[in-house]
Computed example of a mutant assay.
Amino acid sequence: MATQKISLNWKEGVYFESEGPGGIVPIDGSEEVGGQGKGLRPKALMLSALAGCSGIDVASLIKKMRIDVDTFDIDVEAELTEEHPKFYHKVWVNFNFYGDNLNEKKIEKAVTLSVDTYCGVMEMFRQFATVETKINYFPKK
């Protein structure tokens, strides 16, 4: 069974650096708890992990499926519960593809494979939140 490990290193105040496979990520708290805006907040980092996981899948599938895409980005928005401990209970993931000759059928297949089969972070989110996905197509930037 595969395992992963990170080390969280306290730097000052509520600023930390998370070191793991491939690099270091700065993490900081909100201003209300003494944060200074030096890094991502922990909950936002979860949304970044979701977008990153699916983005890596889609980028890999675009290459394998030889899909002509100028570029793409992923926007994630989430709603927190009102009671403590606050957690995401609704999540919206928008896949935005840019190009002049987009093959929407192939792009939809790539996104669906990521969302339904490959992205483990997406599956983790489904354990505690309703996740909605949408694909948007735009002309070349």
Rank of each mutant, 00 (worst) to 15 (best):
A59M: 07
V93F: 00
I56C: 01
E79D: 15
V69S: 01
N94I: 13
A59D: 10
I62A: 11
E83Y: 12
Y88V: 04
L61T: 07
A59R: 01
K63F: 07
G55N: 02
P85N: 08
Y88D: 01
L61M: 12
V58D: 07
K86H: 04
D73Q: 02
I67M: 04
R66P: 01
R66G: 10
W92Y: 13
H84K: 13
D57W: 03
D75H: 05
A78Q: 06
S60D: 10
V76P: 02
A59T: 05
V93G: 00
K90E: 12
E77D: 14
D70G: 04
E83S: 15
A78L: 06
L80S: 14
I62C: 09
H89M: 07
P85V: 08
D57V: 05
A78C: 06
K63W: 07
V76W: 00
D68T: 06
I62T: 10
A59S: 09
F87V: 14
E82M: 15
G55Y: 03
H89R: 11
F87C: 11
S60Q: 11
F87A: 11
V58A: 08
I67Y: 03
H89K: 15
N94E: 11
D68Q: 07
E79I: 09
T71W: 05
L80N: 14
T81Q: 09
V69N: 01
I74M: 04
E79H: 08
V91A: 07
F87W: 10
M65S: 08
E82V: 15
H84G: 11
A59P: 00
K64Q: 11
T81F: 08
T81I: 08
T81L: 09
H89Q: 13
V58K: 00
Y88T: 02
E79G: 13
V91Y: 03
T81C: 09
D57H: 03
K63L: 10
D68H: 04
D73L: 05
H84V: 13
I67P: 00
V69G: 02
M65T: 08
M65N: 07
I62V: 15
T81H: 09
I62S: 10
L80V: 11
E83W: 14
N94K: 14
D70F: 06
L80W: 13
A59N: 04
K64T: 08
E82C: 15
M65I: 06
H89C: 11
N94G: 05
K90M: 09
E82D: 15
I74E: 02
K86V: 06
K86F: 03
D70N: 08
V91D: 04
K86T: 07
N94S: 13
V93R: 01
R66D: 12
W92R: 15
I56H: 02
F72G: 00
K64A: 13
D57K: 00
N94A: 12
T71L: 04
W92I: 13
T71S: 11
A59E: 07
T81E: 08
I56Y: 02
I62D: 12
P85I: 06
E79Y: 07
V76H: 03
Y88E: 01
T71F: 03
T71H: 04
I62Y: 10
H84L: 12
E82W: 14
D57S: 02
W92G: 09
H89N: 15
E83P: 15
L80M: 15
A59Y: 02
H84P: 12
E83M: 15
A59L: 09
P85E: 08
W92M: 13
